[in-house]
């Protein structure tokens, strides 16, 4: 147990509207929240291509597939991936590739090739800017009881920082980062004009 950042995807608005800020000290660009979104997109909406165009496109070898310990995530995706026409795709479990794409941001030059190459729009250039930022969950920088800057600055009410267990409506996509899965359909929060 420990403090976790909880993201309610259904409420999440673009940074210009939510005003979310980041206090990660190694970058001046206030883009830590984008790096979180990048990780979440890779974990949740990336199609996990068997032969991945993004990996093949990257000239720096900065993208690789790493085995995910969160194999159970895929079951949940099937449950919640309901669109207007019902459950989206019943793929047999064995057909899922559980490897998740990871970008080595020290190798990445921000060339944008992966964003152009991905057939599904998983990544876009705003999320992979150079220099990269990284959310470190403000570890070691918070007073007892204090919440990270993103939580206190975000105006759309999508962020919280609490000591919780991931349960049925939530998923710990990454260590200490918990996402509230929207009931309406997992893909929807990522649409432009949702």
């Amino acid at each position: 147990m420990g403090m976790k950042l909880i993201i309610d995807l259904a409420k999440c608005k673009p940074q210009e509207e939510s005003g979310v800020q980041c206090s990660y000290k190694h970058h001046p660009l206030n883009k830590g929240f984008d790096s979180l979104m990048e990780l979440i997109r890779f974990a949740l909406i990336c199609r996990r291509c068997e032969v991945a165009p993004c990996v093949n496109a990257c000239p720096q070898g900065a993208l690789e597939k790493v085995p995910s310990e969160k194999g159970g995530l895929m079951d949940k995706m099937l449950l919640v991936s309901t669109g207007p026409r019902g459950v989206l795709g019943k793929v047999p479990k064995d057909n899922f590739h559980t490897d998740i794409i990871k970008r080595a941001n020290m190798l990445c030059t921000g060339c944008g090739s992966c964003a152009i190459a991905c057939p599904f729009g998983t990544i876009y250039t705003d999320l992979i800017q150079f220099p990269s930022s990284e959310c470190d969950l403000c570890k070691g920088r918070l007073e007892p009881g204090e919440k990270p800057l993103c939580v206190t600055s975000c105006e759309d009410g999508s962020l919280d920082y609490q000591d919780v267990h991931a349960d049925d409506g939530t998923e710990e996509v990454l260590e200490d980062i918990v996402v509230k899965l929207p009931g309406s359909g997992l893909w929807e929060p990522f649409l432009k004009n949702k």
Binding site: A115, C118, P119, F120, T122, I123, Y124, W187, F190, N193
Partner: peptide, 23 residues
């Protein structure tokens, strides 16, 4: 704004690719 089937035959940005694939 609205996605239509003919968008499959357009050059799309990542966000529109996503939109088209989902909607």
């Amino acid at each position: 704004r609205d996605v239509q089937t003919s968008d499959f035959m357009r050059i799309l940005c990542p966000k529109c690719k996503y939109e088209l694939n989902i909607r």
